[in-house]
Design a protein around this nucleic acid. Structure first.
Lengths: 208, 208
DNA sequence: CAGGGTATTGAACGCCGCTCAATATTGTGC
DNA sequence: GCACAATATTGAGCGGCGTTCAATACCCTG
């Protein structure tokens, strides 16, 4: 045995999560196993169970990191788009639509850029459907971006939340269709067209 | 050893698929294993490999059955709704909207009624994203119902197909949200309201 | 009734998640 | 400087997984 105290528990935690992310990026969620993670960080399985409750716990924490990364990604793309469109255009309905489209396309772009990580968010299904509070919070942060973009529409808070959920569920559905390659016909262009069709018509319907 | 020729290959196939469905219904996709299926039909694992290529093949065939069942379910609900609304109302836009809503609600109802089976359609991910032709055909049949319901709108064939994909991806997204219980607030009513919000506004946007 | 053909078996292989007694390493008190 | 308590780390072991294939038990043909 060796290396007692060479790494703190928190260091081991981070190393394990890094290694897990690397494995998932390379081989997808099915390639993830405690033995592989342990080998990658040059510890043994037993050590992992000192730091994580079990593999589900570890998986959920990887997903938590992914949600953080997704949030940052969306923010970055939002800022880039806002810079391109000039300052303080966020108040009218047309600008709101553009903001939503920006978010939607950024979301889909993330799913494409980081497909295995993104897929794992949904491939790992919690059985007792009990996501911990911290996880729901991270989810809420991402959802919050959509709600914020919709606020200029001037609907009530609860109505805005509803619209955001419907819209984001729909964008997610299109994204799934794209990633799972169920769309034999479709390239990138097709997906953007579908997203635009969804968002513009849905919002026009809301106004009309 | 025993029972040589007691069951034909096709009989064994059906027994295995039945057993697999029962296991999935009871314990979900993660509970499915060759050893359990074999035990349930009182054969051994080896026999399963005479009838199926591997567990993935078997899983895909269970999913194929589910697609058939879903198709029948949607047809039945369509017919019931059509009977309720009187004969030959399928021609104007309002009726078209009702037809889509009927389909959407029936889809979500199926997911609720047969959650494990329905979930397995998406939890089992084909790695080489090569669904066999027969599977794509079954998928196409379900999609075809949506396209048919949209035909009264009078869009071109390709446009109708696009609209159907967008709409169905979106309904699926809402359905996912419901089933995965990410909606803490939501009961059945909430989901129906969200579906209605999506469909009515999207279609109104298309018209307007 | 012998023998070929085949349906069926089940042990074996290398994985998996997870546990826990055994052990190696360290810091402390003398 | 040393013994000892405390603890970080190990890794064999358990039961389960998908998959393979030589061995076997059965049936049919001649």
């Amino acid at each position: 045995m060796a290396r007692r105290g060479e790494h703190s528990r928190e260091e081991i935690r981070q190393m394990a999560l890094d290694a897990a992310e690397a494995i998932v990026a390379r081989e997808g969620y099915p390639g993830l196993s405690t033995r592989r993670i342990a080998a990658a960080i040059r510890y043994t399985v037993g050590t992992l169970y000192l730091v994580f409750e079990n593999l589900d716990d570890l998986t959920l924490q990887v997903n938590g990191r992914t949600l953080d990364a997704l949030y940052d990604w969306l923010r970055t793309h939002q800022d880039a788009a806002a810079a391109g469109a000039g300052i303080a255009v966020g108040q009218d309905v047309a600008a709101c639509q553009e903001a939503i489209l920006t978010l939607a396309n950024a979301y889909i772009a993330y799913a494409e850029a980081e497909t295995p990580r993104w897929s794992m968010l949904f491939e790992y299904v919690v059985q007792e459907n009990e996501q911990p509070e911290w996880y729901l919070h991270k989810l809420g942060q991402v959802f919050g971006l959509v709600e914020a973009a919709l606020r200029p529409l001037g609907a009530g808070d609860l109505e805005t939340q509803r619209i955001a959920r419907v819209l984001w569920a729909s964008v997610h559905g299109i994204c799934l269709l794209k990633i799972r390659q169920r769309m034999v016909l479709a390239g990138n262009q097709e997906t953007e067209a579908m997203t635009r069709m969804l968002v513009t018509n849905f919002l026009r319907g809301l106004r009309g």
